[in-house]
Design a protein around this nucleic acid. Structure first.
Length: 194
DNA sequence: ACCGGGATGTTCT
DNA sequence: GAACATCCCGGTG
């Protein structure tokens, strides 16, 4: 067991390459951790579904910064979602972390999620559920997930990515919905939707 | 099981 | 003023 943080070179590539390789890595936030089982790639100026499509704004500035940082955004008036920034500075690439299989801190996750989470598959089976379960909000936007200095890090525990991940179109988009840039671990019950 | 609507506030047109 | 990388609850079958 190595539990090595993913290095900068891992993130410094196109998000469409990084995304499927993030499957089966471990996201840790303080004492809570889970295996990444569902991701989506967002691709900047070529992707009308990406927040970064129309260029840098105060909201999406972190997406245009260095890879290996966390981009956290607020949506629908109540939900936070978290991405791993990829690619070179200025490209606006990121991978949305959509679902985890809980590995540690399940009691904290359950407390954070509230009464709606009755089963372990309710804890992190969606991007906003995952952020809520792990206590990730806007105050972690821009933090370094290579050093993990602010408590959030992605590590490799030695489990390889699935040889044959399921690839589909992304969830919840109007623009850019045709691109097949979502991947998940086949058969995993913690995925947001099959 | 599946579907429809409401919550709730930031961001950008 | 509209859209929004969502989720939850209550209806019906």
């Amino acid at each position: 067991m190595t539990y090595a943080p993913l290095p900068r070179e891992f993130y410094d590539r196109d998000s469409v390459v990084v995304a499927p390789e993030l499957l089966n890595k471990v996201l840790r936030s303080g004492g809570r951790a889970g295996r990444i089982v569902e991701v989506e790639a967002y691709r900047g100026s070529v992707d009308p579904g990406a927040h970064s499509y129309r260029g840098c704004t105060p909201r999406n500035a972190v997406m245009f910064g260095p890879p290996g940082h966390l981009y956290v955004y607020f949506t629908y008036g109540m939900h936070w979602c978290a991405n791993a920034v990829c690619g070179a500075v200025g490209e606006g690439l990121a991978v949305l972390l959509r679902a985890l299989e809980p590995l540690a801190g399940e009691d904290e996750m359950t407390a954070a999620r509230g009464p709606a989470a009755r089963r372990s598959t309710d804890l992190c089976s969606g991007p906003a559920k995952m952020a809520q379960a792990l206590g990730i909000t806007g105050n972690l936007n821009g933090t370094d997930i290579i050093s993990g200095a602010d408590g959030v890090v992605i590590v490799d525990d030695g489990t390889p990515p699935p040889a044959r991940p399921v690839q589909t179109t992304r969830v919840g988009l109007s623009a850019g919905a045709e691109h097949p840039w979502r991947w998940y671990v086949a058969g995993n019950p913690h995925v947001s939707r099959p």
